[in-house]
Design a protein around this nucleic acid. Sequence first.
DNA 1: AACCCGGGGTA
DNA 2: TACCCAGGGTT
Length: 351
Amino acid sequence: MREKHNMSVILLGWYDENAREMPWRVAPQDRMAGVTPDPYAVWLSEIMLQQTTVVTVKDYFQRFIAHWPTVFDLANAKDADVMGEWAGLGYYARARNLLKCARTVVADHGGIFPADHDALLKLPGIGPYTAAAVSSIAFDLPYAVLDGNVERVLARLHNIHTPLPEAKPELRALAQSYTPSNRAGDYAQAIMDLGATTCTPKSPSCGICPWRDPCIAREKGTMADLPRKAPKKVKPIRHGTVFLGKREDGAWLLETRPEKGLLGGMLGWPGTDWVDTSLPLPEGNAPAAGHWAEQAGEVRHTFTHFHLILKVMVAELPKDSTPNRGTFRSLSDFRPSDLPTVMRKAFDLAQ
DNA sequence: AACCCGGGGTA
DNA sequence: TACCCAGGGTT
């Protein structure tokens, strides 16, 4: 019998011994000594951790905190600076909503993140997962986090074969039922750590799992099959062309992409639309007059829903070039690290 | 409910 | 190379 209170006690005991150190995290021992987390740091880390691993997030988090130590600093930041620091993390709508949220917290909440689950849920970029994560981790409110890690742990613990997302309501109820009223924040981090380090998607380390004994999937040997997921769709291939124009003085012709849509608000190279056809492509109009030459090779990049193959055109442009789109950025004004990965691949190919 | 949003890791 | 992983917003 899996007695709920005992289950959380076992997991919290495991967490006290095994908690991973993270720049935004208050160690369980420190927390028990009365140290409380900075809600701004918790929120920032949780936004970054959406669809992104701890290893990837660490450096970005440190740079953001160094640049903008408080929500007031972030709210006052220039959009382009924040988008540039976010470049490479992906899911760029997160960065746009990050800024919106910081500005809303300053404007509507006096710069204090509300210790209130429903108020958090109303903020831009904060959905069910993040509202529960900030509520529990920053404020120790007993809300249950349900991310991919927790779904996997609970689907195995209860041997649930219903495919996701259909199984979500059942998993959500289970997650809430295991969440203790005391140390809810440590518990949330513990169950996510368990999924990330022990109850892993492939070859889970059942032998060292604190929940090994009550786990039904472990007993039945079905761990590897769980959680089940709805079949995924095939990704189409799209084609396009980008134009990398370099002026005689070394400045590059770049443009800021529209706020909405793919790579919204990010820096990029002018180019054609990306089309589904694999037939010979209509060349898009170049952004400026010049001797455009096709770069050998091509850029291949896979987005969430399609594969992209990009042709790269390069040209040396005259000092008096008058482009019909984009703006020239001098070398001091352009960091390749400000580019999203697909655009950086094009830059690397042209180098 | 279905679809739109990247990038990194592993086999 | 192919496949796996995974929250929030929009429509």
